[in-house]
């Protein structure tokens, strides 16, 4: 019990004094997961919207695939990216393994289906609400998409944040493709795993606090967005 309290106190000190290692690790975490969220949104949001509006034969298949991809275990994604970028792999020449870029790629694969799926759901609802009006006003295809993306922007932000939240707490994939290299690819989650293993509980706890803080910040934002979302609907 005393250990934990001491750990907590030292962790608080690390956070308050902005310990250099802690800051570096946190910044890399943000960089990787924000990067992945931006790229994942650039792919996932239009894909989700497109799936919501268009009817085509393989639509159900694509949606089922998307849902299946959402449940991909990160470790498996990590392994897949590892094999792809390993020295003898098909993309080995790029030399990306054990770099933040490889970590971003792995996270993009993990979070894009989530972003696309949430966006699809939201835009489909909006499309159902707007359908008659947009048809009656003889909107063009691009006017429809523009209207739905604009009026659904809060829900789309929610989708992006959900992707970011998933990425920032993810450990399996980035551990494999990043390698948790000090001052190079170490992020919050992998560092926590390491410090815990070493018995350095104060650092692990400090990292944990930051991660929890980030998670709470993301969730609060999500909550506020979904409340304004609902508030604007009723």
């Amino acid at each position: 019990m005393n250990d934990i309290l001491q750990g907590l106190a030292r962790a608080a000190k690390l956070v308050v004094t902005l310990n250099a290692d802690l800051v570096e690790i946190t910044l890399l975490s943000l960089q990787v997961s924000l990067g992945a969220a931006v790229i994942g949104s650039a792919i996932g949001l239009p894909l989700g919207a497109w799936l919501a509006i268009n009817r085509f034969p393989a639509r159900r298949m694509v949606i089922a695939l998307l849902n299946a991809l959402m449940g991909l275990p990160p470790v498996v994604v990590g392994l897949f990216v590892y094999v792809l970028f390993s020295r003898s792999g098909p993309l080995g020449v790029l030399g990306l393994l054990f770099t933040p870029t490889a970590m971003v790629i792995a996270q993009v694969i993990i979070i894009t289906p989530i972003i696309a799926s949430v966006a699809h759901q939201a835009i489909r609802e909006l499309w159902a609400d707007y359908h008659d009006l947009l048809i009656s006003l003889e909107t063009t295809h691009s006017q429809r998409i523009a209207t739905l993306l604009w009026d659904g922007r809060r829900a789309l932000m929610t989708a992006s944040l959900a992707g970011f939240g998933r990425g920032i707490g993810e450990v399996g994939a980035i551990m494999i493709v990043g390698g948790n290299i000090d001052h190079a690819t170490r992020v919050l989650t992998t560092a926590i795993a390491l410090e815990t293993g070493k018995g350095e509980f104060d650092m692990a706890l400090a990292l944990g606090f930051v991660l929890i803080g980030l998670a709470i910040a993301v969730n609060l934002t999500l909550h506020m967005l979904s409340r304004t979302e609902r508030g604007s609907r009723w």
């Binding site: 707007y130 009656s136 009026d151 659904g152 604007s232």
Partner: peptide, 10 residues
């Protein structure tokens, strides 16, 4: 066309 249930935009 004015629908019986007004279609609300956000």
């Amino acid at each position: 066309f004015v629908f019986q249930t007004p279609i609300l935009m956000r």
